[in-house]
Amino acid sequence: MKLRFIFILSFLLLSCKPDKKAVKTIKLAHSLGVTHPVHETMVYMADLVKEKSNGKLQIQIYSNSQLGSEKQCLELLQIGSLGMTKVSAAVMENFSPDLKVLGYPYLFRSDAHRFKVYDGPIGKELLSASKKYWLKGLTYFDAGNRSFYTKNTPINTPEDLKGLKIRVMQSPTAIEMVKRFGGAPTPISWGELYTSLQQGVVDGAENNLPSFYSSKHYEVCKYFSLNEHTSVPDILVIGTPTWEKLAPNEKDWLLQAVAEATQYQRKLWKEAEEKAMEEIQKAGVKILRPDKSLFEARSKDMLQHLKQTDGHLYDLAQQIKSVQ
């Protein structure tokens, strides 16, 4: 893994040559497949940037973890070897600790509540907090609600998770949550998960419907339990070394494209959820609708524990809950 990372870093450094035509290119890498709605949004954004700049600023996209895991991409952003990336807020919390609040279970009442938080003062403050880590958050892409899916065991109550190895992101909050539910959290990178499910390294995972569908995990896992425990957004991030090299007009082109792409993505996401639900049922996946209150009750201690260990983050969670 380290050798692969060194190879990627060497590739990026060698490819950062000035363009004779004075076209500035920002490299954007992420872990999703090309059919995922967030990837489609980034393609849409890249087209907007090219159009607004008359081709003077362009975004080159590398999908499917071509340039490394989410964590590795963030590290490349920090040193300026990569320009932009899309990561889950759960991974970003390792670089900007306040973001961990977005991974707490049952924090949001509805989609409308979630978007008010993302677009409002709290969301903007959380995005800007990562600047001291050489990472500038640009926007939140909706990633819907995360639920459990498994190979052989239907999850109707938290007790059904007992003894099951559940893949989670490299997030302390996600790890603690699965432990509270009774499962055995197992951090595995997204790119390695399909094989891990096939080989029985893990018994299941947790994610949203479009990701479950676009990754083809439905070919291995035949139970999807809509307990909707968290709503962890994706975050579009630019490295501050890259951001600071942009001229004022280039920053404007990029920010305008990001704002338009954000609204486009939310529409695309709802369509993707509907399509994913339809297609996975055709593929024989059984959709379960458990009593969410059973899972919520198990997770309440997480916030109480947070009150004792991190009063700032606890207050932030309460502020989010109180947004009307």
Rank of each mutant, 00 (worst) to 15 (best):
T262K: 14
M169I: 07
I280M: 15
L48A: 05
Q199D: 02
T309Y: 07
S53F: 10
I8Y: 10
A22Y: 12
W134I: 02
L107K: 09
P185Y: 05
L32E: 07
V258A: 10
E273I: 12
L268W: 07
L135W: 06
M84C: 12
I79E: 12
V237Q: 11
E40H: 13
G83I: 13
T139Y: 08
G103Y: 08
L316P: 03
Y44E: 12
H39G: 05
M42T: 15
E271P: 02
L255I: 04
L313I: 13
E93D: 02
K100Q: 12
P241A: 06
D19M: 01
T195C: 01
Y140F: 11
S53A: 11
F295G: 13
Y223M: 04
Y223S: 02
I59F: 14
P210A: 10
K222Y: 09
E192P: 02
S96P: 08
K165Q: 06
A259Y: 09
D315V: 00
V117Q: 02
I320G: 04
R180I: 02
R114C: 06
L102E: 02
H312W: 09
M1F: 14
G204S: 03
R266S: 10
N94E: 11
V168Y: 04
N208C: 15
S65P: 05
L254H: 02
L255H: 00
Y314S: 09
G163L: 11
G191Y: 00
G123P: 04
R114E: 04
M177V: 05
E278W: 06
L32V: 00
G33N: 15
H312M: 07
L82T: 09
L12M: 13
I238W: 09
P187C: 13
P172K: 14
W134Y: 07
Q256N: 11
Y118F: 09
D291I: 01
E250W: 01
K286T: 15
G311E: 12
L268Y: 07
Y118W: 11
K270H: 04
F148R: 01
G163K: 08
L3H: 11
K132D: 14
E219K: 07
T150A: 10
L255F: 01
G144L: 01
R298C: 13
V23P: 11
E250V: 05
P290N: 09
L197P: 08
N94C: 05
L32M: 15
Q72L: 07
K245T: 13
E271G: 14
V232K: 04
G137W: 03
I280L: 14
D310V: 11
H39Q: 12
N156L: 05
H217G: 12
